[in-house]
Computed example of a mutant assay.
Amino acid sequence: MTQELYQLLLIEDESATVKMILDFLESSAVSPLAERLLVQVTAVSDLDEAVKVCQKQEFEIILLDLFLADIEGIDALVQARKIFPEQSIIAYSQSEDEQLVIQSFQHGADGYLRLKNLDSYLLYYELLSVLQRKIYQSKSESQRSLASQQKEYLDLETLISSTTSVTARMFGSDTIKDSFPELFEELKQTYGNLLDLALEQRAFKVEHDLSSRLRNLADRLGFMKASPRDIIQIHTTTLREKNRDTNIVKSQAYVAEGRLMVLELMGYLASFYRKYYVSLNNLSISSRLPPKDSS
């Protein structure tokens, strides 16, 4: 089994300290914890250089010296946290000031090390602790997101089962999914393509004129005498298939864009039926009007 390689960014302006930390990380024979963590270190001397490096590569953990040449103390951590809001940061220093330790955690440090007491074991232990906490938080977030999605699907499916279709009462029709499964698959494919375009439009700031495409889809559904229940079935089935084998970030994006799309599509279908009913009502009224007196 291939061991995962973790990228570590070291922000340190003293070459002797850089060498010491690299030596600790290479002391696999000294620390048994090293067998559980394979790291690759990139060292930079200041925050500006760190920004440039992070534009080209992602790092799981940042090791930050709190006493750099151009910024010192808690200000270094505050600035680093502004620049790297998502990365795990382990701060360290030569200082024995307890207030600095407390302030570091208050300002977003995920760990803290004192160089005076540092050895290979303590360094690996801190790195493993921060990584495991990060993995746990990521899994918890994924589980919460999945639970939220499942609840949304359940709510929509409950709405499907409890809604009495206006169009079913009007036309005596079943759902498109039950009556014409092949047509339902085609509509689902069309809706899925529009959902992909919505994500592309959001991510790359391009314009796909989704409103016109959704209006065309709504008109097509209207001519099929579709109901809101049909739209919800198309929406939930498409989302389930899209999110089956995708990562959590893309899954959340599908759900977010889907909420907007399904509401817009329902609005266009309602507009279609309003026009339809107006035409029927006008026709019905005109047929009941007495003929005009020709004299």
Score class of each variant (00 low, 15 high):
residue 78 V to G: 00
residue 97 D to I: 14
residue 157 E to W: 07
residue 160 I to F: 02
residue 102 I to S: 01
residue 108 G to V: 06
residue 96 E to W: 13
residue 190 T to W: 10
residue 85 P to S: 09
residue 198 A to I: 13
residue 133 R to P: 00
residue 141 E to N: 09
residue 193 N to P: 01
residue 117 N to A: 07
residue 177 K to R: 14
residue 131 L to S: 00
residue 89 I to Q: 02
residue 136 Y to D: 00
residue 170 M to N: 11
residue 101 V to A: 04
residue 132 Q to N: 11
residue 183 L to C: 05
residue 120 S to N: 04
residue 143 Q to K: 09
residue 72 E to M: 12
residue 116 K to I: 09
residue 180 F to G: 02
residue 85 P to D: 08
residue 155 D to H: 00
residue 150 Q to A: 01
residue 134 K to L: 14
residue 175 T to Y: 02
residue 151 K to H: 02
residue 121 Y to I: 13
residue 91 A to Y: 08
residue 104 S to E: 01
residue 196 D to Y: 12
residue 200 E to L: 12
residue 80 A to R: 05
residue 180 F to L: 10
residue 116 K to N: 06
residue 105 F to H: 00
residue 124 Y to S: 01
residue 87 Q to H: 10
residue 92 Y to A: 05
residue 82 K to P: 12
residue 180 F to K: 15
residue 72 E to P: 00
residue 82 K to Q: 11
residue 73 G to R: 04
residue 126 E to Y: 04
residue 104 S to R: 03
residue 200 E to P: 02
residue 121 Y to H: 12
residue 142 S to Q: 12
residue 71 I to L: 07
residue 190 T to Y: 14
residue 117 N to R: 13
residue 187 L to N: 08
residue 144 R to H: 04
residue 132 Q to L: 08
residue 151 K to S: 03
residue 103 Q to A: 15
residue 71 I to V: 14
residue 204 F to E: 15
residue 127 L to P: 04
residue 77 L to N: 02
residue 178 D to A: 14
residue 85 P to Q: 13
residue 195 L to C: 07
residue 191 Y to A: 06
residue 148 S to Y: 12
residue 167 T to Y: 06
residue 108 G to H: 04
residue 108 G to Q: 03
residue 192 G to R: 13
residue 80 A to P: 03
residue 190 T to Q: 14
residue 132 Q to P: 01
residue 80 A to W: 03
residue 102 I to V: 13
residue 178 D to H: 09
residue 196 D to W: 10
residue 121 Y to R: 14
residue 111 G to A: 08
residue 178 D to W: 05
residue 182 E to R: 11
residue 78 V to K: 08
residue 172 G to R: 14
residue 192 G to A: 06
residue 167 T to M: 04
residue 132 Q to F: 10
residue 172 G to D: 08
residue 123 L to G: 01
residue 146 L to D: 06
residue 73 G to Q: 12
residue 78 V to Q: 07
residue 177 K to C: 06
residue 137 Q to L: 14
residue 95 S to W: 13
residue 185 E to D: 15
residue 125 Y to M: 08
residue 203 A to Q: 15
residue 103 Q to F: 15
residue 144 R to N: 04
residue 144 R to F: 03
residue 103 Q to M: 13
residue 182 E to W: 10
